[in-house]
């Protein structure tokens, strides 16, 4: 087991290097350049633009730029944003808490919806509860978040005037009112994301549990006279969790990467909005840093999922 994890971690190093090469090449080849606004400004002479490009190293060949980036990264220097003219790690650290809180809570919300609803619906397939849960789930993932977001704003902020729809990361004040303000402004973004994610997950959980619930060992457990609750939790859930673990592991890196659309709608200063601004402005060091951290997380969490499979089903062997 330990050996397996160690081996996977060792494989991860060349993986990450390969991923970084591909990322860098894609970004270097992709159209656009970071000085768009300079280009449309008649007061900035072309040679100034050229000098600026040169000073940021944009005119060097791709491989030179890649090695510069790699060695800087190895030394812990994440690079320097073309657009903000500050260090990239400062930019990311500034946004990390908000991202973790908002996106993290939304994923927890999604799990809290998906697990009980999915399991309960699967234990009573095609009952009224199941039908309603399914229909709501379909609505949930057939409406894009840009749409549900606006719907929420119209209803809760404009019609009812209950919740603010502009997220402010630094509300002045302290104590309970301060906390309450934070909760109020977080409700809508968390709900929009959580419901969208939860809707899809509900379907997966239901399907996974349905697969297990009719197996003979469950019938056996029932025949032994075990309580239905015990059967569901101890016997069914554990075996149904493999697909769920896979999906949760897949979405964990997104907790760091943020949610571009939702962050945009509610003006949440998360890493998703940092990434999309950087992409639109072609701010390569920022894109590189964010996507690279995401790929590290992808690899780590997928490894974690692989280890968890073994815990959930001891028969799975790692060879």
């Amino acid at each position: 087991m330990t050996q397996y994890v160690l081996r996977r971690l060792l494989i991860a190093i060349p993986s990450l290097l390969g991923i970084s090469v591909i990322l860098f090449t894609v970004l270097a080849l992709a159209p656009g350049d970071p000085f768009e606004e300079l280009a449309t400004n008649p007061a900035v002479p072309p040679d100034v633009r050229a000098a600026l490009r040169a000073s940021l190293g944009l005119d060097d060949p791709v491989h030179v730029r890649y090695f510069n980036w790699l060695f800087a990264m190895l030394r812990g220097d994440w690079g320097y944003s073309f657009v903000s003219r500050i260090d990239v790690d400062d930019l990311i650290l500034q946004r990390l808490p908000t991202t973790l809180i908002v996106i993290g809570s939304s994923q927890i919300l999604a799990l809290m919806i998906a697990l009980p609803v999915g399991v309960y619906a699967a234990t009573r397939p095609y009952s009224i509860f199941d039908q309603i849960a399914n229909t709501l789930a379909f609505i949930g993932f057939s409406l894009p978040t840009f749409f549900t977001g606006i719907l929420f704003i119209l209803f809760f902020s404009i019609y009812l005037d209950w919740l603010p729809f502009v997220y402010r990361s630094d509300i002045p004040g302290s104590g309970l009112p301060w906390f309450w303000e934070h909760v109020k402004q977080s409700i809508m973004p968390i709900a929009v994301l959580g419901l969208f994610q939860g809707a899809a997950w509900t379907r997966f959980v239901r399907s996974a549990v349905l697969d297990v619930i009719r197996l003979d060992y469950v019938t056996t457990a029932r025949a032994k006279g075990l309580a239905e609750r015990v059967i569901t939790i101890k016997h069914v859930m554990r075996n149904a969790l493999i697909p769920v673990v896979t999906l949760v592991a897949l979405s964990m890196p997104a907790v760091f990467g943020g949610a571009i659309v939702t962050e945009q709608i509610f003006r949440v200063p998360g890493i998703g909005s940092l990434l999309i601004t950087a992409i639109l402005a072609n701010d390569t060091p920022v894109i590189m840093a964010v996507t690279f951290v995401v790929s590290i997380l992808v690899i780590l969490f997928n490894l974690l999922a692989d280890v968890l499979y073994g815990w959930l089903d001891p028969r799975i062997s790692y060879r």
Binding site: I150, I153, S157, I158, D161, P164, F165, V166, R168, Q264, I265, F266, R267, P269, S273
Partner: peptide, 20 residues
Amino acid sequence: IKGGGDAVSAARAVLQTGEY
């Protein structure tokens, strides 16, 4: 000065809710 989002919801925040 708070930044980000889209123009329509910015207009709403002033003209409809008076948040800004």
